[in-house]
Design a protein around this nucleic acid. Structure first.
Length: 323
DNA sequence: TGCTGCGCCGATAAATGG
DNA sequence: CCATTTATCGGCGCAGCA
């Protein structure tokens, strides 16, 4: 999908970022952590999170740590052999908390994409009130309000975002798009406090903290957090181009975010979880969801914490595969 | 049965480090 | 400069709900 509507934004050195010096609208979608505390879902049998801190003390150290084990064939093959820094859901030690807080200033960086379509010169952090759109298009409401109150599409059959004037063919596309303008429904990383509009985005991000790298190169020992990174590596380093049709879905990989273990089927992942992580948040969430479904859809607070990476597990690796 | 939200995926931008 | 990492966001499948 071409992204011609994307434009570059002047880079800002993350190490020099001073959030207090920036107006809200320039902070973009970087969440300013208020109180980031992980849920109490700790597995006492797991190793100390001090090792996490050691791995995450700086970005450089973090990379060194993850690369060290990703280049170690013994480390990447078996999930149980992964370093403890890949384990989620452990009680944060003071050291870990210190590292996390330090990361807020040195690790998080702005990656704001700006859409074209004649947006306001200074995109405000708060969504402006609705303005008049093109006469033949349905105008989106303020994203901070309900995104589903637009009427049916007009003869043009288009839905227009009033923030950036982008046009969508379907209302649900517009609703989805409005999230990127909204301050609501942020999914917060418990490691660094960064916010995301999508749980999957948060899940991917958390891998940068945990060291989980599900996508492993079969030709060398490198591993990656994102599939596209692996495909890029295969193409550039090994000259292997994946043969996929345009928009063809790759084989789904079921990832255990507890340790990075991957499975080709949901059943295999569940077996792994039952044997290796019987107290995992994912399994607990699965049980809780079953119970909540029986109780009328009440979601347990523990599994609905938006800031918890563990909360991802409830719909994470299973996700659509469960659907 | 259609609508909607959620989650996943992929394309791609941008930053980083060797 | 290039490989890699990380982040953003549109597209889409699926399940739940009215």
């Amino acid at each position: 999908m071409p992204r011609a509507f994307l434009v570059k934004k002047p880079s800002v050195s993350p190490g020099k970022r001073s959030w207090s010096d920036l107006p809200d609208h320039e902070r973009g979608d970087i969440y300013i952590p208020v109180s980031v505390s992980p849920p109490v879902l700790w597995d006492e049998t797991e190793a100390s999170t001090a090792e996490v801190a050691l791995c995450l003390s700086t970005r450089k150290e973090h990379i060194r740590c993850t690369q060290k084990y990703t280049q170690d064939p013994h480390a990447v093959v078996s999930t149980a052999e992964l370093p403890s820094c890949t384990t989620l859901g452990q009680h944060p030690s003071p050291e870990t908390e210190r590292i996390r807080s330090s990361q807020n200033s040195s690790y998080v960086r702005s990656k704001i994409k700006v859409t074209t379509g004649d947006p306001p010169s200074e995109a405000p952090a708060t969504i402006p009130s609705m303005t008049t759109g093109p006469p033949d298009a349905v105008v989106s409401p303020c994203p901070t309000v309900s995104a589903g109150t637009s009427s049916a599409p007009t003869a043009g059959g288009s839905y227009v975002c009033q923030v950036c004037q982008k046009v969508f063919q379907f209302q649900r596309m517009l609703n989805r798009h409005l999230k990127c303008h909204s301050e609501q429904k942020r999914h917060l990383c418990t490691f660094c406090g960064k916010g995301f509009n999508d749980t999957f985005d948060l899940k991917r991000h958390v891998r940068t903290h945990t060291g989980v790298r599900p996508y492993k190169c079969t030709l060398c020992e490198k591993a990656f957090t994102q599939r596209c990174s692996l495909e890029s590596h295969l193409k550039k380093i090994h000259g292997v181009t994946q043969q996929y049709a345009y928009k063809e879905r790759r084989t789904k990989l079921y990832v255990c975010e507890e340790c990075g273990h991957t499975a080709s089927t949901q059943d295999a992942l569940l077996r792994h979880l039952h044997t290796q992580h019987p107290n995992s948040a994912f399994l607990r969430a699965k049980v809780a969801r079953r119970q909540s479904g029986a109780a009328g859809g009440v979601v347990l607070e523990e599994n609905s914490l938006p800031s918890s990476p563990l909360s991802l597990h409830s719909d994470d690796t299973v996700g659509s595969g469960e659907q």
